[in-house]
């Protein structure tokens, strides 16, 4: 059905969690998924189900318990730091350490995997940086310092930084937290636009299930028992979203594709 060249990220019998000397804490087990190139992919699931652990494992911030992750058909473990930096870029939930950076400096740091030992920017680097700034509509913020930005503006700047890294895959951990409803939609819509314009693969985790259903090409739904990957409409017809949460308070409405509070 899907040929290997079209797969950006694949997991085989992946078990994720935390290992210490004494015991292993398994967060989720037996994850098999294949994410297609050029798709916008939303990862959803209840709090504490292991979305962050999964993303941390896929980005090799944390090591897996067992199984394998393949990035562009190559085992993730065989990537060097430098190769990985040219294939996958990140937007994390953690705050950037120095808010004294200007937006332009922040975006320019995305070029680090390509610059020389002292980090000088070539003409090509400047071009990529300017393109990333245009694509995320932050031209007017270029010279502002990060501490002057609103949460939404900072998120756009961080996405621009990831774009400047010029990788085929961008992974974002909860890019819509702390944003108002308009900016949640704005950021996800921006991601959708970027996928269409640049043919990059973008994977993000989010609690905005209804927005994700409307915008994503593929969704990864994490529940206690399984991790299911499919197109949103298929997931709705299979009734997967009903299994996401306990049923006492909210119910999924198939017609509107969103959750409703039970009366």
């Amino acid at each position: 059905m899907k040929s290997a060249q079209h797969i950006m990220l694949k997991t085989e019998n992946l078990n994720i969690g935390y290992a210490s000397k004494k015991a292993e804490t398994v967060v989720a087990s037996n994850i098999n998924m294949a994410l297609q190139k050029g798709h916008l992919i939303g990862l959803v699931g209840a709090n504490g189900i292991g979305k962050s652990t999964l993303l941390r494992t896929l980005t090799s911030v944390q090591s897996k318990l067992s199984g394998a992750v393949f990035l562009k058909d190559k085992n993730l473990e065989t990537y060097s730091n430098a190769d990985l930096a040219r294939t996958m870029s990140l937007v994390l939930t953690e705050k950037i350490a120095s808010k004294n950076l200007s937006v332009y400096e922040l975006v320019a740091l995305g070029r680090q995997p390509y610059t020389n030992w002292v980090g000088n920017l070539s003409d090509n680097d400047l071009e990529v940086i300017n393109r990333a700034i245009t694509q995320t509509n932050i031209e007017t913020l270029k010279d502002k310092k990060c501490f002057e930005l609103s949460d939404g503006q900072l998120q756009k700047a961080l996405i621009a930084r990831a774009l400047a890294q010029n990788t085929d895959l961008i992974i974002l951990d909860e890019p819509t937290t702390h944003l108002d409803m308009y900016h949640k939609a704005y950021i996800l819509k921006l991601l959708q636009k970027l996928v269409k314009e640049t043919n990059k693969t973008i994977l993000f985790s989010s609690h905005e299930i209804d927005l994700a259903i409307q915008l994503c090409d593929t969704m990864v739904v994490m529940t206690k028992d399984s991790v299911i990957t499919d197109a949103p409409c298929n997931l709705i017809s299979k009734g997967v979203f009903e299994t996401l949460f306990p049923k006492d308070l909210i119910a999924f409405d198939n017609l509107s594709g969103s959750f409703r509070v039970k009366k």
């Binding site: 911030v61 870029s89 994390l92 995305g110 680090q112 030992w117 890294q165």
Partner: peptide, 24 residues
């Protein structure tokens, strides 16, 4: 110190970002 300039600039983003930029 001079050879650490690039590393120092990556570290301005925090260690996880610096690592994702290819820094050891």
């Amino acid at each position: 110190t001079i050879f650490s300039i690039k590393a120092l600039n990556s570290l301005l983003l925090g260690e996880n970002y610096a690592k994702s930029l290819g820094l050891n």
